[in-house]
Amino acid sequence: MSRVVQFGKWLTRWFTVVVVVWAIINFFLPQTSMWAKSYTNYFLSIILFGMGMTLSIEDFKRIVKMPLMVIVGTLAHYIIMPLLAVALCKIFHLDGMIAVGVILVGCCPSGTSSNVMSFLSRGDVALDVSIGLLSTLCAPIMVPLLMSGLASQYVQIPVTKLFLTALEVVLIPVALGVAVHAIFGNRVQKVTVALPAVSQIAILVIIGVVVSVNNAKLFTVETAMVLPVVMLHNLCGYGLGYLFSRLMFKVYPKGFRYAQQKAITFEVGMQDSALGATLALQAFAANPVVAIPSTFFSVWHNISGSVLSSWWRRHDDDYAIAADSQHGEHSSAKTPESAQPAAVPSAS
């Protein structure tokens, strides 16, 4: 098991590079991952089952203990990112299934990689995990609802298929994972230490499938604008998430302090792109191009999140800003317990 843990740490460190290399392999050798086309929902279920196994009753209690911040953060995510996706599609004149793919990734819940970025930047990881959990649990309702309202202008949205797929790959695996944790308690830690490696391998399989099935369309005139749009989507999500959290600080300064502002910034800007790709391949099977924006997002938001978290940490060190400061003012107080890392599965 120690070798698996070491491999997981290595894969986490070099994940972005591995993703790029893996994507190149599948681009030139599309048969590499084509076998898994019909099984992407199972691979995502494995990831979310693992997420459920890392959750305890305390994680759910935390939502009850800080309902305002968790609910507000979740609402911000589900308002800012979908509307931002629609706006970018209009600005860059995206149409058809490509626009549907951009909006789909915008309607997804926040990705678990935001938990890692929040920890690295000394943000409030507990709040980050709570918002991510609530947004994920809401996904089977929110994704079909938002897609039917925002993307139906481009194509008829299979609302029922989206709902059933999200229910199958999100709620059921998470619920089973939580049940396993509740039954076996701390004994699940013998297994959860391997989750980073398992989760990232599952993500690689999903990315490989998307690249393989879109081999002929990945770099065409039709998809030329997807990468810059995805980059802007993510970066604007960070910016608007941070501005929103600063505004909430003026309304409720006790709850939306500096560490919470960092958490909300990452929670708004980072998406569960693996879910987006899986929903695209399952609900829009005849048009796999819908999954391309989610795949690009998966690579890009890990790069941007790492850069932003590193910059934020260095900035705070340079200006002697403590993690528990009100709004980024100089302080020498100790980093609060809420900013300590929580057990989470690998980035998606």
Rank of each mutant, 00 (worst) to 15 (best):
G73K: 05
A259V: 00
A263F: 08
P158C: 02
A259W: 00
A179Q: 07
L134M: 01
V64L: 15
V213Y: 10
E337C: 04
A263M: 09
A224L: 10
L104P: 06
F296I: 14
A202V: 02
N186H: 11
A322E: 11
Q260E: 14
W300L: 13
M225L: 13
S348E: 12
V155K: 03
K217A: 13
P173G: 05
A99N: 11
V251T: 04
I303P: 05
V191H: 01
P345Q: 10
N41C: 05
V180S: 06
A347M: 15
A76P: 04
S325H: 07
P144R: 09
N215I: 00
E58F: 07
A283G: 04
Y319G: 04
G8L: 12
I79G: 04
I103G: 05
I25V: 15
V205D: 00
M66E: 14
L84Q: 04
L137K: 06
F284E: 00
H330N: 09
S348D: 06
N26V: 09
A291K: 12
Y319M: 13
I80Q: 00
R122H: 11
V86C: 07
G255E: 14
K262L: 15
Q326L: 14
M248F: 02
V4D: 08
L235G: 06
S152M: 03
Q271I: 12
G208F: 03
F284N: 01
A343T: 06
A291V: 09
Y154L: 01
S212F: 03
I206M: 11
D59L: 06
G276I: 02
T278S: 12
D59E: 07
G96A: 02
S135M: 08
S2M: 12
N186I: 09
M248W: 00
S38R: 11
V299L: 15
Q260K: 10
A342I: 03
K37A: 15
V344D: 06
R13E: 10
S273W: 05
V209D: 00
V72C: 03
T16S: 13
A347H: 10
Q340D: 05
Y238A: 12
L84F: 10
F249C: 10
K65D: 10
K65G: 07
A87W: 14
S199R: 01
L104S: 04
A280K: 09
F284D: 02
P341K: 14
L308K: 05
A323D: 13
A323G: 09
A76M: 03
V180N: 08
R313A: 13
E168M: 13
V198Y: 04
Y242L: 13
A139N: 02
A277I: 09
A224P: 01
A166N: 00
V143F: 10
L240M: 15
L75G: 09
S304F: 08
L204V: 03
Q326W: 10
A274H: 02
Y78A: 00
S152G: 08
F15W: 02
M248E: 03
R3D: 14
